[in-house]
Design a protein around this nucleic acid. Structure first.
Ligand code: MN
Ligand code: MN
Ligand code: ZN
Ligand code: ZN
Lengths: 143, 143
DNA sequence: TATGCTTTTGAAAATCATTTTCATTTAGTC
DNA sequence: GACTAAATGAAAATGATTTTCAAAAGCATA
């Protein structure tokens, strides 16, 4: 599936008339090798460790492209750092965020999703995206 | 009810051992006279127009106190500006945010609230707060 | 009311994540 | 290989927020 994601991104880039660059390939490889909600700085450090030449601005720019291509989703929690997570086609989830240990637990709730659609409908509102974050303490931290 | 809110804040301040200052009184009066989701900068400008001497840092500091006291709620949307709204005792709502005109529509959904509690329970998670924001286009902007 | 101690304030500087600038390098085309 | 526009990296700029610090003000006490 990593190969498919690379292909998908390359199609997106081609359709957008973007050039294919060594930097983007490397950043994509490394992003795809990570798991869960990585911050730009964290990814930048990972990238830099194997490719010291790649600049921070390029990582910022490239992650934005990933999000635009549908490969990644931008997550803004309450710590002032933008994070990115992998998008799995056809799937969606929201987050429980532990303010004790910064753990992030993912959950899906079809009923909540549908209720949101109802609410939007009721207000004549067209949904582009939504964010549902529950902040508190995970089972470990609440002890 | 404005008087009650002032009293409530004064009790909070007293309990915290804070001194009563002209600046905080003025900022509280002006905050209570506003409606809906005001940004710190907006409130600062309002304050400055009648009280040019009051500094921005004081407005930042004071709004944080209001939130801490339970009088105000901090709202972080996706535009990089912190906003504050009035807290009505015993009430809670979430937001539909129009990315076209920046309008914010409030809604309440008891079922969604309860489902969140279920989810938390299922994960052994203790909820401190949550945010549910639906982004998209309001009925005016979608045309 | 004056004194002394401590908090609060305002202005300016600092912070920090992110974006922009711009000179240089590079990819894609001929 | 040469040309042209896009992409890059380093550094500067940005912008919201926080911190610093000297001066001002609140509050307890004499
Ligand atoms: Mn996730
Ligand atoms: Mn609201
Ligand atoms: Zn935890
Ligand atoms: Zn609108």
């Amino acid at each position: 599936m990593i190969l498919e994601k690379k292909k998908a991104f390359n199609s997106f880039a081609a359709a957008k008339g973007l050039r294919s660059t060594r930097q983007r390939d490397i950043i994509l490889d490394i992003f795809l090798s990570t798991h869960q909600h990585i911050s730009v700085e964290e990814l930048y450090l990972k990238v830099k460790s194997s490719n010291p030449g790649i600049g921070q601005a390029t990582v910022y720019r490239t992650l934005k492209l990933f999000a635009e291509s549908g490969l990644a989703r931008e997550i803004l929690l309450h710590d002032g750092q933008t994070r990115y997570e992998h998008v799995v086609a056809g799937e969606h989830h929201d987050h429980l965020v532990c303010t004790g240990c910064n753990a992030i637990i993912e959950f899906e709730d079809e009923t909540i999703e549908n209720l949101q659609k109802d609410i939007a409908l009721r207000h004549g509102f067209f949904i582009r995206s939504h964010k549902l974050e529950i902040y508190g303490l995970c089972s470990t931290c609440r002890i």
